[in-house]
Design a protein around this nucleic acid. Structure first.
Lengths: 200, 200, 200, 200
DNA sequence: GATGAATGAGCTTTCATTCAT
DNA sequence: TATGAATGAAAGCTCATTCAT
């Protein structure tokens, strides 16, 4: 037994916390937050429920921790965006990087998308709203036509939609990603274009 | 008006089923399906839980019944759409009427949007997916460029997004509705336009 | 109207009551008393639960009424037996007629056999015990050897067992009945025989 | 005994599962399965209902576990019987040991006898039937007269009856047991004897 | 004779959480 | 680091019963 060749036991040490997060996120995304019980998570990890409580104070903390670990890119993005000038280039970059951020933590965002009612009641609910507002404020010219404001918001949502709905659109997954990005960029450009003319 | 203020008791008789649906939908939309207990619904109606079970066999049946009662317009729309030629006019009409249908049963659709994980597990989950596919098939030219397919789907989603997110965009609510519709129509037109040129 | 025989009205009256009894007994025997709900009975009759309450004051009353309607033969038998001399002929006749009585109301006795725990708590529980004791006292000579007392009781039980277990013994049903009776009679004869010798 | 008055609390640890089984069996046998609620069991043990669920997944599992723990002797007996020659000695031994097995787990068998309707619906229902058939097949000569087949089955039932009904036959309990066994053995001998003569 | 609507009590089961070890 | 044992609260649901109509 000693300790040679890593044996499952050895390797696990120290990353149980991570494993909990992984399994939990998988289940949350698949079945929803409320329908996923701690018993289920524990069983899948082959530990006891009590073990989860060693690593996380509450069930909510598990999802919050995932949130905190996985959403840094988005926070950074907003931070960055705020300091840039309101040019088209900035907006395009925001869209591009937001798309990447979404793709980089797909399960979490799928979870958030499909459990909005739950997320809203959670501690993270407000954070989420703050993002959306932050991004919106960067993308939107406050004195733009209403239609163009909608267009900007819709560009963001196109990226969201892209993650889920496009799944049952046939075609190469990478190409679809590009197409989605293309459409979103296009919308942001249209919105920007109009605003310029108006400003002339 | 006959009986003036009518006294709550009198009016209740005979429409309890409806009242249950109303209250339930309100709570489901507000807090989510799982977080809303039958006790809560019953309390708000000042009846016992058992009374709910006189009118509905299960909790799920309550939401299913709402679904069945409120989604006829959408089903009709798809039915109608299928029989029309794939012209731009058809597509525009679909978008317009879909927007109306969403607006006409806002709480239900908000519920569905925000409880997707739940809805998916419910009996109605598949119906919902079938819609989306039905609409998509009507709006999309199967041999259109991927980008334009995305554009069509995104037009639909713009309408969805319109219901919820725009809420914290400032401005007159009627005008916002129009703006959302405008954007959605615009997208569908662009998608259609490209397809035409390609066909030339 | 008056009272001529049968006018539809007349016939119906007391007919629903009967139908309830029939259906109830069928279900009680099949699934047990507790597992059979009034809803189920009502549904099978295509009436409402409330209708059952027009005919019977409680659920228990349904089973009690069946009991009262179907067990007269047994009560008569005991009554009769008590007044006879303790001869072998009397005992044989008791066994014979008891067998017939069981066969004549099979579902009820099957119900009682398979729901003893329930029956015991019901109002009829004691009546049932009283029978058994009544029959026993007729069949048993109080100063007989213990072994022969057992034999007598066992003769009775052979008849009971005959109703249920023999079901999966192959063979013509009528012949099986005869065989069971034969065995029971044989036992009672043996018991009686010994007692006689002892008495010599 | 070591710790004097032992304090209820101390002793409990580690054997809760057993205590649940004991109390449950007692109540099931006394009042029937359906009429015994988990609340009642829990209260009598001075634990919460949830504690029961820590030890057993469902109410049914409690009775099933009892069944599994207490019926090994019977299964062994059948196993053994199947491998013996169909001599009278074998049959006598079966009767003798079956009687012992019944006596060794009286409450369980009383429960099964008095809750047949319930047991039939439970997971264990079939097992029970299989026994009866197994024993029957060992005791019965397939080409024996019907009357003797009945006699064999009835011998088994005499043992069953012995457990319950004899209770209100007066006399020393040990002597009654012997008498019951005697009668059962006698029946099996008669059945065997006839078969032999027929075979001559 | 029967229904429609409702109730009160209770049931089995599940859940997040705690804590001594 | 974890487990074993347990809890308190609540959930969805069913049942026998009632009563005005």
């Amino acid at each position: 037994m000693g300790g040679t060749m890593d044996g499952t036991k050895q390797q696990r040490r120290g990353n149980t916390r991570q494993r909990i997060q992984d399994v939990a996120l998988g289940l949350f995304a698949e079945q929803g937050y409320e329908k996923t019980s701690l018993r289920e998570i524990a069983e899948r990890l082959d530990v006891t429920k009590a073990a989860l409580y060693y690593h996380f104070k509450t069930k909510e903390e598990i999802i919050v921790s995932l949130f905190e670990d996985l959403t840094k890119p988005i926070e950074d993005l907003i931070e960055w965006g705020r300091r840039q000038p309101g040019t088209l280039e900035t907006k395009e970059e925001i869209i591009r990087r937001y798309g990447e951020a979404l793709a980089g933590a797909e399960p979490l965002f799928r979870f958030m998308q499909e459990n909005q009612a739950t997320v809203r009641e959670l501690r993270i609910g407000d954070t989420f709203k703050d993002w959306m507002r932050g991004l919106r404020d960067i993308l939107i010219d406050p004195d733009a036509e209403l239609v163009d404001q909608v267009r900007s918001v819709s560009a963001m949502f196109t990226l969201h939609a892209g993650m889920f709905v496009m799944r049952d659109l046939e075609g190469d997954s990478e190409k679809k990603r590009e197409a989605v990005l293309e459409v979103a960029l296009d919308m942001i450009r249209q919105a920007h274009e109009h605003a310029r003319h108006k400003g002339d």
